[in-house]
């Protein structure tokens, strides 16, 4: 139990750092989708299924989609 949770939290941190590192905005958006998915699992671990469902639908689904649509219209690389 403890290992699962610490692993998930470590993954969360890693993906946040990966978002900070990458200069490719499209991959930043995709990593952020992964981040949201891990977050949804963490919510599930914390016995918050409502939020887990919403996070999976919103964070991993809609928000990432909106990011990708915007990146597609404005240019892919950070200067």
């Amino acid at each position: 139990m403890l290992t699962v949770r610490s692993l998930l939290l470590a993954l969360l941190l890693l993906s946040a750092l990966a978002v900070a590192r990458t200069r490719d905005l499209l991959s930043a958006a995709v990593i952020f989708a992964g981040y949201s998915l891990i977050m949804a699992t963490v919510w599930q671990q914390l016995r918050a299924p409502d939020i887990a469902l919403a996070e999976a639908a919103i964070g991993a689904g809609i928000t990432s989609l909106l990011f990708i649509v915007t990146v597609a219209r404005t240019g892919r690389y950070e200067k």
Partner: peptide, 22 residues
């Protein structure tokens, strides 16, 4: 300085606050 990155950062910050609360 990229504004899209700033928004992603904002989202990460918010989820951190949510995590504390839950």
């Amino acid at each position: 300085s990229n504004l899209i990155k700033k928004i992603i950062g904002m989202n990460i910050m918010e989820t951190a606050v949510f995590l504390i609360f839950i």
